[in-house]
Amino acid sequence: MNLFVTNISRTVSEEALKALFSEFGQVSSVKIISDKHTGESKGFGFVDMANDSQAFHAIERLMNAEFFGKRLMVSKARPKTSSY
């Protein structure tokens, strides 16, 4: 299941985010979105977890959890829609 994570501190690395979510199960991938011009984190990203029940548990436990001084917002990612 792909999770959408917002309010990520700009100092958080993908490795740190992966370690946090790995406490709840197998993490397939992590991607923190960065500005294409500056390379700076935009403060949101995606975590892909292999097991849906573990992903739901991570959502439940990490929603509003403090991480690097900010309260995370975690939800199931919505499918990308076309913009035409």
Rank of each mutant, 00 (worst) to 15 (best):
T81Q: 13
R61A: 08
T11R: 14
K76L: 14
F67W: 10
F68N: 06
M63H: 15
S29A: 13
S53H: 13
S29Y: 03
M73I: 08
F44T: 04
V27D: 05
M73N: 14
K42P: 01
L3V: 01
I8S: 08
N7F: 12
A58Y: 01
A77C: 06
A65V: 01
G69W: 06
T38M: 08
N64R: 10
K18E: 12
K70W: 04
F44S: 09
F68V: 02
F67R: 07
V5M: 06
F44W: 07
M49R: 04
A65P: 02
I33G: 14
K18R: 15
M63F: 03
D48E: 13
T38W: 03
K70A: 04
T11N: 14
I32S: 09
F24D: 03
F4Y: 12
E60W: 15
E60P: 00
K18F: 04
E66T: 05
D52K: 13
K80S: 11
S29Q: 13
K18Y: 10
A19C: 02
L3R: 11
I32P: 06
F24I: 00
A50M: 10
V74G: 03
T11L: 10
G69F: 03
F44C: 06
I32E: 11
E14D: 10
N7V: 04
S9G: 11
F56E: 14
G69M: 00
V74E: 02
K76C: 02
M1N: 10
K31D: 04
L72C: 04
E15V: 02
S82M: 08
F56M: 12
I33A: 11
P79G: 09
S9W: 07
V74F: 07
E60R: 15
G25E: 02
M1S: 14
N51C: 04
I33Q: 12
K31V: 02
F68L: 07
S28C: 09
N2R: 15
E66L: 01
V27H: 05
F68A: 03
L17H: 06
K18S: 11
T38Q: 05
R71M: 09
R71G: 10
G45W: 05
K31W: 03
M63D: 15
V27W: 01
S13W: 00
L72H: 03
H37E: 12
T81G: 11
S82E: 09
G69E: 06
S22H: 07
F21P: 01
F67K: 05
D48R: 09
I32Q: 07
S83W: 15
A77V: 00
F68E: 07
F21H: 01
R61I: 00
M63T: 09
D35G: 01
S29I: 11
I8P: 07
R71I: 02
F4A: 00
M49V: 00
L62K: 12
K80A: 11
S75Q: 13
R10K: 10
M1E: 08
L62W: 06
S83R: 14
H57N: 14
F46P: 05
A16Q: 15
T38S: 15
R61D: 04
G39F: 04
G39A: 11
I33T: 06
G39Q: 11
A19G: 01
G43T: 01
K18A: 11
E14P: 02
S34Y: 02
V27E: 07
I59M: 08
P79S: 09
V27A: 05
V5W: 06
R78D: 05
E66P: 00
